[in-house]
Amino acid sequence: MLYVKVKTEDGEELVLEVEGMTEDEIREELAKAGFKIEEIEVYEVEP
């Protein structure tokens, strides 16, 4: 499983499960949803 931890400019932290997306695609999708991203951390969790 691939997850991203996202910190927004307003200090909110989100953890999202993503599969088959690049970091650029993740940033693009979050921007479309109205999030202003300060930091993204991508990590993989073994089942």
Rank of each mutant, 00 (worst) to 15 (best):
M1E: 04
M1S: 10
M1L: 14
M1P: 15
M1K: 15
M1A: 09
M1V: 14
M1W: 11
M1Q: 08
M1D: 04
M1Y: 13
M1I: 13
L2F: 14
L2G: 06
L2V: 08
L2N: 08
L2A: 06
L2S: 11
L2C: 08
L2W: 14
L2D: 04
L2Q: 10
Y3G: 10
Y3C: 15
Y3P: 03
Y3E: 07
Y3N: 13
Y3F: 10
Y3W: 13
Y3T: 15
Y3V: 15
V4R: 00
V4A: 04
V4E: 01
V4L: 03
V4H: 00
V4T: 00
V4F: 05
K5R: 07
K5C: 10
K5S: 04
K5Q: 03
K5L: 06
K5A: 02
K5P: 02
K5N: 02
K5V: 12
K5T: 08
V6P: 00
V6W: 05
V6Q: 00
V6M: 05
V6F: 12
V6L: 07
V6G: 02
V6K: 00
K7A: 05
K7N: 04
K7Q: 06
K7M: 13
K7D: 02
K7Y: 11
K7S: 07
K7R: 10
T8P: 02
T8E: 01
T8G: 07
T8D: 04
T8C: 15
T8A: 05
E9P: 11
E9V: 12
E9T: 12
E9C: 14
E9G: 09
E9M: 12
E9K: 13
E9N: 08
E9Y: 08
D10M: 06
D10I: 04
D10W: 11
D10C: 12
D10Q: 07
D10L: 08
D10K: 07
D10F: 09
D10R: 07
D10H: 09
D10E: 08
G11Q: 02
G11N: 03
G11V: 01
G11K: 01
G11R: 01
G11L: 02
G11C: 10
G11T: 01
G11H: 02
G11S: 02
E12G: 10
E12V: 12
E12T: 13
E12W: 14
E12I: 14
E12Q: 12
E12K: 14
E13Q: 08
E13Y: 15
E13V: 14
E13L: 11
E13P: 03
E13N: 05
E13H: 08
E13K: 03
E13G: 03
E13I: 15
L14P: 00
L14R: 06
L14H: 06
L14A: 03
L14D: 01
L14T: 03
L14V: 07
L14E: 02
L14I: 11
L14Y: 13
L14K: 04
V15S: 04
V15C: 15
V15R: 05
V15E: 05
V15L: 12
V15D: 03
V15A: 03
V15P: 00
V15H: 07
V15N: 05
V15T: 06
V15Y: 14
L16K: 01
L16P: 00
L16F: 14
L16S: 01
L16H: 01
L16A: 02
L16T: 01
E17H: 14
E17M: 15
E17D: 04
E17I: 15
E17L: 15
E17C: 15
E17K: 14
E17Y: 15
E17G: 06
V18H: 01
V18P: 00
V18A: 03
V18G: 01
V18Y: 14
V18E: 00
V18W: 06
V18T: 03
V18M: 10
V18R: 04
V18C: 14
E19N: 13
E19T: 15
E19D: 07
E19W: 15
E19Q: 13
E19M: 13
E19A: 11
G20Q: 04
G20L: 05
G20Y: 07
G20F: 08
G20E: 03
G20N: 08
G20R: 08
G20D: 04
G20S: 05
G20A: 05
G20K: 06
G20W: 12
M21A: 05
M21C: 14
M21V: 05
M21R: 10
M21H: 08
M21Q: 05
M21L: 10
M21Y: 10
M21K: 09
T22M: 04
T22K: 03
T22V: 02
T22I: 03
T22C: 06
T22A: 03
T22Q: 03
T22L: 04
E23P: 11
E23Y: 13
E23G: 06
E23F: 14
E23L: 15
E23A: 12
E23R: 10
E23Q: 06
E23K: 08
E23V: 14
E23I: 15
E23H: 07
E23M: 15
D24R: 10
D24F: 10
D24W: 11
D24G: 07
D24M: 10
D24I: 08
D24N: 08
D24S: 11
D24A: 13
E25S: 05
E25R: 05
E25L: 05
E25V: 04
E25H: 04
E25T: 04
E25I: 03
E25Y: 04
E25N: 04
E25G: 04
E25A: 07
E25F: 03
E25Q: 09
E25P: 00
E25M: 06
I26Q: 00
I26H: 00
I26D: 00
I26G: 00
I26Y: 01
I26P: 00
I26S: 00
I26M: 03
I26F: 03
I26A: 03
R27Q: 02
R27K: 08
R27D: 00
R27P: 00
R27L: 10
R27G: 02
R27W: 07
R27M: 09
R27N: 02
E28Q: 10
E28F: 11
E28C: 07
E28Y: 12
E28S: 08
E28W: 10
E28P: 01
E28L: 09
E28D: 08
E29W: 15
E29S: 12
E29P: 01
E29Y: 15
E29Q: 11
E29D: 05
E29N: 07
E29F: 15
E29R: 11
E29L: 15
L30I: 03
L30C: 05
L30A: 02
L30S: 00
L30W: 03
L30D: 00
L30V: 03
L30Y: 04
L30P: 00
L30Q: 00
A31L: 12
A31Y: 09
A31C: 09
A31E: 10
A31V: 13
A31R: 12
A31S: 10
A31I: 12
A31N: 05
A31D: 04
A31T: 11
K32G: 04
K32Y: 04
K32P: 00
K32V: 03
K32N: 06
K32A: 07
K32W: 04
K32R: 10
K32T: 04
A33H: 13
A33G: 05
A33P: 01
A33M: 14
A33E: 05
A33V: 06
A33S: 06
G34R: 02
G34K: 02
G34M: 02
G34A: 01
G34P: 02
G34E: 01
G34N: 02
G34H: 02
G34V: 01
G34W: 02
G34Y: 02
F35K: 02
F35P: 00
F35V: 06
F35C: 11
F35E: 00
F35I: 09
F35H: 04
F35R: 01
F35Y: 13
F35L: 06
K36G: 05
K36N: 09
K36S: 07
K36I: 09
K36Q: 08
K36T: 08
K36R: 08
I37G: 07
I37K: 08
I37N: 09
I37A: 09
I37Y: 11
I37D: 12
I37M: 10
I37E: 06
E38S: 12
E38N: 09
E38K: 13
E38W: 12
E38P: 02
E38F: 13
E38C: 14
E38Y: 12
E38V: 15
E38A: 13
E38T: 14
E39R: 06
E39K: 07
E39A: 12
E39F: 13
E39L: 12
E39I: 14
E39S: 14
E39T: 13
I40A: 03
I40P: 01
I40V: 05
I40L: 07
I40D: 01
I40E: 01
I40H: 01
I40N: 01
I40G: 01
I40Q: 01
I40K: 01
I40M: 08
I40R: 01
E41Q: 09
E41D: 05
E41C: 13
E41R: 08
E41W: 15
E41T: 11
E41H: 10
E41K: 07
E41G: 05
E41L: 12
E41N: 08
E41V: 11
V42P: 03
V42M: 09
V42K: 03
V42Y: 09
V42W: 13
V42E: 02
V42G: 04
V42R: 05
V42F: 14
V42C: 06
Y43L: 09
Y43D: 02
Y43W: 11
Y43G: 04
Y43I: 10
Y43E: 03
Y43A: 04
Y43K: 04
E44A: 09
E44M: 10
E44N: 09
E44T: 10
E44C: 13
E44K: 07
E44R: 08
E44H: 12
E44Y: 14
E44L: 10
V45K: 10
V45C: 10
V45Q: 10
E46I: 11
E46P: 13
E46V: 09
E46D: 11
E46Q: 12
E46F: 14
E46M: 13
E46A: 10
E46C: 15
E46K: 11
E46L: 13
P47L: 09
P47R: 06
P47M: 10
P47V: 08
P47Q: 07
P47N: 07
